[in-house]
């Protein structure tokens, strides 16, 4: 039973505005891949981008839409790229979120920074309307909480991050923010964004990859009837055998059996008969 080839997870970008998306589309050579009434998707091998529109609810819906569009594969890398305001940080500075707070819900999330952050990190507060008072020393924006909570349903938190580029501050208000400015700011941050993507994808490779290839497993289900519980047991036993004896040729022996229970018992006996190594 040959082990499945190692697979690099995909990176899923979520951006609110076309002017945030355009530099990413060009940089990663993404092509239009699909659209619904609400969302547009662009893609290239290993990369997807969904244009969500403004606000946390749309960001959450866009995450769900992209997850389904990309084949409902779990534990993919997710990155929300967008703009935000901060009282003091200079325009164009990019920050990774180390805390995301939904101001309305008074709820916070803490994206685990398991890699060395290549940029500054900050608290990000998701607000309902554009913030002009900048009360706290944090980044104010409008999508992160919806994006993050939704993405956590489909992946593990270490692979989900928000990168926010400062578009306004006390010196330069939201009134000065134009599509052209946003596009320029994102373009200036592309190298940093790409570095973050590489770090997340490298981290993702530490996830366990041991799997029984679907077609191998299907062979068992076609040959014998396994209850749902037995299917779990079967998968577990095949994984254990794959670990202990990667070149095992057990199919000829199993083919002689008529009952699923006998298949499970034969696999157990085979595992228990193998010399135990560390």
């Amino acid at each position: 039973m040959p082990p499945k080839k190692l697979m690099m997870p995909d990176i899923h970008f979520v951006t609110a505005l076309p002017c945030e998306a355009q530099p990413l589309i060009e940089f990663y050579r993404l092509k239009p891949a699909g659209r619904s009434k609400s969302f547009e998707i662009y893609e290239a091998p290993g990369k997807h981008l969904v244009l969500s529109g403004v606000g946390k609810i749309r960001a959450a819906e866009a995450v769900r839409f992209l997850h389904e569009f990309a084949g409902k594969i779990r534990d993919q890398a997710w990155l929300n790229v967008g703009i935000g305001g901060h009282p003091d940080l200079k325009i164009g500075e990019g920050v990774l979120a180390h805390k995301i707070t939904d101001q309305k819900l008074a709820k916070s999330w803490y994206p685990p920074l398991v890699f060395e952050a290549p940029s500054r990190t900050e608290s990000v507060v998701t607000v309902e309307r554009a913030e002009n008072k900048y009360g706290e020393s944090c980044v104010y924006e409008m999508e992160a909480s919806g994006f993050y909570e939704a993405a956590c349903r489909f992946s593990t938190a270490e692979l989900i991050h928000c990168y926010k580029i400062i578009s306004d501050n006390r010196e330069s208000s939201t009134k000065k923010v134009s599509a052209a400015l946003v596009e320029r700011l994102v373009r200036q941050n592309l190298e940093m964004i790409d570095e973050i993507v590489k770090k997340i994808l490298t981290l993702a490779q530490a996830l366990p990859h041991a799997e029984i290839p679907a077609h191998e497993f299907q062979k068992f289900l076609e040959r014998w009837h396994f209850t749902v519980t037995e299917q779990h047991q079967l998968r577990r036993l095949l994984l254990r055998l794959q670990t202990l004896e990667p070149e095992a040729e057990i199919w000829p022996e199993l083919q002689l059996l008529t009952k699923s229970k006998d298949v499970l018992n034969t696999l157990k006996d085979r595992i228990n008969s193998l010399p135990v190594a560390l």
Partner: peptide
Amino acid sequence: EVFNPNAQNFRLQKQKPA
């Protein structure tokens, strides 16, 4: 709030725990 959320992976975090 930090320690208990569901969507976390012990193996990944073990690379650089906080």
